[in-house]
Amino acid sequence: MTIELKPVKIDTGSPDEEGRLAFAGDRLVAVLVLLSDEHAEAGKWFLEAGFGKLNVRPEPVFRDLAEASRWIEAQLKRALF
């Protein structure tokens, strides 16, 4: 299933505010945020929130949106256990 990413501003209570809503079809499955300069991993994307099978701990950091989309697809295909 293709993952569609829609730009959104997120109030994370931090300078990390450029976000993407990740949709699988018409379902919102995750919220990603671009890490600001205050992080050692600035410029990478963080799983701000994941729903259903994407609700994991600790939340992963992705090199770019392509990697995030691949992870989301793979995670959605996984069995729960």
Partner: peptide, 22 residues
């Protein structure tokens, strides 16, 4: 490290760095 702090309180590195700033 931030990572060790996060591992102790069960949050990600990213949240540790936000919390320390807050």
């Amino acid at each position: 490290t931030q990572s060790e702090l996060g591992d102790a309180v069960g949050i990600s590195n990213i949240h540790v760095s936000r919390v320390l700033r807050d």
